Amino acid sequence: MVTLADVARHAGVSPSTVSYVLSGKRSISEATRRRVQHAVEELGYHPNAGARALAGRRSHIIALVVPLRTDVYVPIMMEIAVSVTMAARQHGYDVLLITNDEGPDGVRRVAASGLADGVILMDVELDDERIPVLREQGIHASMIGLPADSTGLSCVDHDFAAAGAQCADHLADLGHRDVAFIGYAPAVYHRHAGYAERTLTGFRERALERGLRFLHRPCEGTYESTAGTLARILADRPDTTGFVVQNENAIGPLLQLLPTSGRTVPEDASVVALCPEQLAEQYAPGLTAVTGPAQELGRVAVDQVMRRIAAAERGTDPEDELVLLAPVLTPRQSSGPLLTPVPPARRR
């Protein structure tokens, strides 16, 4: 199927110029207009998106690309998806769900078919393969996540670097000097998921500033994998007294396993998690947690897409937007001042 990008390459212009020629919503030189029209006729370019642009109509649909992975925390993803749906309805839009297993081809299919006026991507990787397609096709889009290069994009995300730094500061302020960061499964880091890598970077940089000795250990999140991760941490650093957990599935197992290693929470070991507020409140002792507003992510992403659509209709270039939502650390009973210089297991 011939795409708008094919026409642009054939005519030697940008995809946005082709879009402006088809819509007639921006003044284009006669020579450029003739080149584009010749390319359209020669390639047989007749997608639905082009027909809608010529008619000046919208589909009033936003495509939301949701992750289908075993290593993502599904409740948060669903909360964001619901938020996107509710925010879209306030603009008179419906939401079309697309799974991320389609990758760049799924985004390209939506653009070519004209099914949606805009796209929202979730689970954004640092070098996300879908982003070049968005730029190539000139799709109105927002990222719920922050890629390595956000040029020409609208993005919204939690400030994961700041969240990681808050965890390091909290443990350092309580007197802990040996700490461990229990992260997501290795596959999450291998695919360079932005939320995982930015949190770890923020934690690592602040830990170094505060003079903390730290370990990072990926973890699958099952009881067995968490037990193995904790055993390796204590074998490598027996004096570890502070634990930061980003993998939500590992929180419960860790709180169960620490007492069996001779460490009472929070007297001998402090635990800080990066997780939703409702999850933190489920545990006993109450879980010290860094949280962020998941629903706000969906609302901001929809607003960003709508502004880009409106700018195109006015014939103006959309403004790039980067919104980072500030994290909040809420101290509870799972963290406290370091009362003993060495864990009980070492003293014995």
Rank of each mutant, 00 (worst) to 15 (best):
R9Y: 09
A11M: 07
T17A: 14
V18P: 06
S19P: 09
S19C: 06
A39I: 08
L43R: 10
Y45R: 15
Y45G: 13
H46Q: 15
N48G: 15
A55R: 14
I62G: 06
V65T: 08
D71Q: 12
V74R: 12
E79M: 15
V82Q: 13
V84K: 05
M86Q: 14
R89N: 10
H91W: 12
Y93V: 07
T99Y: 00
R108S: 09
A112V: 03
G114N: 04
M122S: 02
D123K: 09
E129K: 10
I131N: 00
I139Y: 05
A148F: 08
S150L: 02
T151V: 08
A161V: 02
A161Q: 12
R177T: 08
R177W: 00
D178T: 05
V179Y: 01
A185L: 01
E197G: 03
R198Y: 06
T201S: 13
L208C: 09
L212P: 08
E220A: 10
A227I: 00
A227F: 01
A227K: 08
L230N: 00
I233P: 00
V245H: 00
L255D: 02
Q256H: 11
L257K: 06
P259Y: 10
S270L: 05
C275P: 02
E277M: 10
Q282C: 01
Q282Y: 00
V290K: 01
G298T: 11
A301V: 13
D303L: 12
D303M: 14
D303C: 12
Q304V: 14
V305T: 10
R307P: 13
E313L: 15
G315C: 11
A326H: 04
P337H: 11
R347Q: 13
R348P: 06
